[in-house]
């Protein structure tokens, strides 16, 4: 957590993916045109969010087995960091949808379920604020978190596949493979995902360290 090599790696990968994301060539696509480059910015937000929520659920399980408040603090701070990325993903998705699907919010299944998944985690934070006793708060919210995580996975990856969606890879639509069969796009997309995940983890460590300092005061 305190070493800096992975922070530098994350920064370099994000820099590379941003520059290459704007300058590298993309396959010609109807409707999407150049906006397919959003793949390097919108999708990594969600990957970062999912990794942060995974960290949170792992810390919650650790809390239940160890009763160590540090694990509880890590769980809540990774949810805080994950929500930043979730909101950024929703907003960038709405902008992208406005100019390719015609409406910012077209009640596409994946859009709706992503919003509900965010609400699940808002509920987690509200639940925490509602309980005053520290031990009780940590235990109840850890259990809630363990239920919320599989719900989030089902909402984002299972249910959208069962019905028609405008998102690629869901319903009758082809997956991203149809777009980035182009190996040049993969060369940008995968580093972008890794880079943003590392940046997300960095944000989480900063939040955790600040909150630890606040507690010691």
């Amino acid at each position: 957590m305190y070493k800096s090599w992975w922070k530098i790696l994350g920064a370099v990968l994000v820099m590379y993916s941003t520059i290459a994301g704007f300058l590298a060539s993309v396959p010609p696509l109807p409707i999407l045109h150049q906006s397919i480059r959003n793949l390097y910015f919108h999708v990594p937000m969600w990957f970062a969010m999912i990794v942060l929520f995974t960290i949170s659920v792992v810390q919650s399980i650790k809390y239940l087995s160890s009763n160590n408040q540090i694990n509880d603090s890590k769980a809540v701070q990774s949810v805080n960091a994950g929500i930043i990325f979730g909101i950024l993903g929703l907003v960038t998705g709405a902008v992208w949808a406005r100019f390719t699907w015609g409406q910012a919010w077209s009640f596409d299944v994946k859009q709706n379920f992503a919003a509900i998944a965010m609400l699940l985690y808002f509920a987690y934070l509200i639940l925490r604020n509602a309980i005053d006793e520290e031990q009780k708060r940590a235990k109840i919210s850890a259990i809630y978190n363990i239920f919320a995580f599989p719900m989030m996975v089902v909402l984002l990856f299972v249910l959208p596949r069962l019905s028609d969606s405008l998102h690629p890879g869901n319903g009758g639509n082809p997956g991203f493979n149809a777009y980035d069969l182009d190996s040049r796009m993969r060369m940008v997309f995968y580093p972008a995902c890794l880079g943003w995940i590392l940046i997300g983890y960095w944000i989480y460590t900063i939040l955790f360290r600040v909150s630890a300092l606040e507690k010691n005061k």
Partner: peptide, 10 residues
């Protein structure tokens, strides 16, 4: 070609 959509998102 909708490049400004990407600029907005960034």
């Amino acid at each position: 070609e909708k490049i400004y959509v990407v600029v907005t998102c960034v």
